[in-house]
Design a protein around this nucleic acid. Structure first.
Lengths: 186, 186
DNA sequence: TTGCAAACTTACTTAGTAGTAAGTATATTT
DNA sequence: AAATATACTTACTACTAAGTAAGTTTGCAA
């Protein structure tokens, strides 16, 4: 694969996660990479191709992570801890997650991008639901709600807190994430 | 106050909550209201003025609601229930809340709009923190976390779930909101 | 060495954006 | 009746966006 193509995807993801899909332009990418606007169109004929590719890359990354955790025999607590670390890292870097960034812009996304984004959300939610359910069966987690509802509660908290962090300065992000985990302790 | 001005604010809020700040234009408003583009500039010289006014209107509305609940002697459970109803209503109407809509677009908002948005977030969070703390003292709510952390968890869940609702169809929004309330039951 | 494909650049179009200056009709005040 | 303010419209500017067509360089293969 071309190095320029990879750089465009990487920078595009960054821009989506900081400025948002509608707020960034091909200009932002071309000037940063020292190439011309049309060079981006060479790899991604339209902005929707770029958007879709970025989401697909993220799905792949997420699946690699969960596969990796499973093959390394992480228990459910450890898996959830690792998952939450993605968000603390994003918070440190002042970025949001892809789902939280593209979600608000759904009305201006193409059908292809939206369907990939839906696929991604469902993959994450299914993994989380599964991890919670299995963890509770094994006696690792304790919670009274339905696993899917609980998964949704946790995912919502993580996504929105990255956004709220920009609005409310006094957020202690670590305590926040800790509270999510501690809430599940037996 | 002018009726056109009020209509512009109302429609503007709607557009922000459905399409997003960067995705709507003065054209969207003018064509819908049957006026010319420049008429909007007459009331709101720049888009930032409109944005700021919309946030201010929302702050006022929120404060009227909480004042009203207090003066009518609602207990904390009833107050929280009423607050959550704002989100179930938004969900029914397929809209997000103002904080959840403008939050993602902070990098493209003016300083004035951002500071009003921060003020709004803090007012909501302070009210929620306060309600949770008082409710727990009175023995109405049960939770182990710090009230501010708990408030943040609840607010994040409510905000993000409106966004996720567009991505994950099988969300049972009522059960979701119910889970938030039930989690606080003694 | 010629041919060809990959990876671009140059130079452009089209469409939409916020914003403005100047004019006009209507109602209100003096 | 004259002056003035309100609430707009007309007609524009300046700019930025995505996207495209055609040309250029570079490396490799026949």
């Amino acid at each position: 694969m071309s190095i320029t193509r990879e750089k465009i995807i990487e920078l595009g993801e960054d821009l989506i996660r900081t400025k948002g899909y509608n707020a960034f332009s091909y200009q932002d990418i071309s000037s940063e990479l020292g190439i011309k606007n049309a060079a981006i169109h060479y790899y991604f004929p339209s902005k929707e191709n770029l958007g879709t590719s970025i989401v697909k890359t993220n799905i792949q990354r997420f699946e690699e992570m969960t596969d990796n955790m499973r093959s390394r025999g992480f228990d459910e607590w450890h898996q959830l801890e690792t998952f939450i670390k993605i968000y603390t890292k994003s918070h440190r870097e002042q970025k949001r997650c892809i789902v939280g960034s593209l979600g608000p812009d759904i009305p201006s996304l193409s059908d292809n991008t939206v369907s990939e984004l839906k696929r991604m959300s469902n993959i994450i939610l299914e993994w989380l639901t599964n991890t919670l359910a299995t963890g509770r069966e094994k006696g690792i987690f304790a919670f009274k709600e339905d696993p899917q509802i609980k998964a949704l509660l946790i995912l919502s908290s993580l996504i929105a807190s990255l956004q709220l962090a920009r609005l409310i300065d006094k957020i202690e992000y670590k305590s926040f994430c800790n509270a999510i985990l501690e809430d599940l302790r037996i």
